[in-house]
């Protein structure tokens, strides 16, 4: 009897455990999961960068591609290759093709503004990255340019204090771009508080290293005692670095960029004093999150108006460590 009770108890216990084990294996279904995947499957994301083939756009595209593949979405890239006109053509035809989300990297604040408005009117969610336009679309994901401008100016100030010539050159990319107007504002904010700093040149290198090299070597010849250069994009600023190297003078070069391996290498070599980086991989994830958000919430295009400023990462000799930067070349392998 006792044995029987024990056995019964055991049996019950066992069966309970078994049931419990079974319950553990089955888990609890998440009722939103299926909807989640359904929301995305078959959706189309279109990406119009300024150009492909540079670290920033390749990075963003790679991260977007990962999410698109995971959620069975289609990512279409239209490469206008530095031509605002070709980009406008691409966006115009995309408007008639009606992708669900349009991710745009503006060459300047005007060229696409009207088209982006039209796109949202046509029901396409527009996400602008890093370089915004005059039109505020659903989402802006990108660097806090004013903050970066301030950080760059401050970094130059560290090296060009009293005792130096305090002469600084500013090398813009393209003054009408969304990034430059912000960085310029940031730099102004700082330099206006430091009247001792003389901005001896403020020129545009048009994102081109060769042009940057000619400009900066000219500036150096005109101002042999130049103390610092505030550059607006690391890829272009390599040209400025070459000019500085050729002059053989100890000129401080501060830059900003996407935190690609090249930046870390050049900071390590002392070519760049500091790079104020917006981390492209993290920006890519922000873009992905915002793509997911606009698609999931089901809000009509043009209603959301969200902004995500990427946090700044200061790459300097002190902060350097392996893995700090990401590699664009690795993406292309």
């Amino acid at each position: 009897m006792r044995m029987g009770r024990i056995a019964a108890t055991l049996g019950l216990a066992l069966s309970l455990t078994g049931a419990a084990a079974y319950a553990t294996a089955a888990g609890i279904d998440d009722p939103r999961r299926a909807d989640y995947f359904k929301d995305f499957a078959g959706k189309t994301i279109a990406f119009v960068p300024v150009t492909m083939g540079i670290d920033l756009t390749e990075g963003w595209a790679a991260v977007m591609k990962q999410q698109a593949d995971r959620l069975h979405m289609k990512l279409e890239i239209r490469d206008p290759h530095f031509s605002a006109d070709a980009g406008a053509q691409a966006i115009t035809s995309l408007i008639s093709e009606k992708p669900d989300v349009l991710v745009v990297h503006n060459p300047d604040v005007n060229s696409y503004a009207r088209l982006l408005k039209r796109a949202e009117a046509a029901g396409i969610h527009v996400i602008q990255i890093n370089m915004r336009s005059n039109y505020n679309s659903d989402v802006y994901v990108g660097a806090d340019w004013i903050g970066i401008g301030e950080a760059e100016a401050n970094a130059v100030l560290e090296k060009c204090g009293p005792g130096t010539s305090q002469k600084v050159a500013i090398l813009q990319g393209q003054p009408t771009s969304g990034s430059d107007s912000g960085m310029m504002k940031g730099a102004d904010n700082v330099f206006s508080k430091h009247p001792e700093i003389k901005v001896v040149a403020n020129l545009a290198g048009e994102w081109d290293a060769t042009k940057a090299q000619s400009i900066i070597s000219t500036v150096i010849q005109q101002n042999p005692d130049l103390c610092g250069v505030v550059g607006f994009w690391d890829v272009m600023d390599l040209g400025a670095a070459a000019a500085i190297k050729q002059s053989g003078k100890p000129i401080v070069l501060v830059t900003s960029g996407g935190g690609e391996q090249m930046a870390c290498d050049n900071v390590a070599k002392g070519v760049f004093y500091k790079e104020i980086a917006y981390q492209v991989m993290n920006q890519g994830r922000d873009i992905n999150d915002m793509i997911a958000t606009v698609l999931e919430t089901g809000l009509p295009a043009g209603k959301l108006k969200a902004v995500i400023y990427s946090p700044q990462l200061v790459i300097s000799k002190e902060s350097l460590h392996p893995g700090l930067c990401w590699s664009a070349a690795a993406l292309k392998k």
Binding site: F82, S83, A84, A88, D108, S111, T176, E206
Partner: peptide, 15 residues
């Protein structure tokens, strides 16, 4: 006509 269409004054125009 291009100016009216895009209203953008970039250095790459017509390059």
């Amino acid at each position: 006509l291009y100016a009216a269409r895009l209203s953008g004054a970039g250095p790459d125009t017509g390059l």
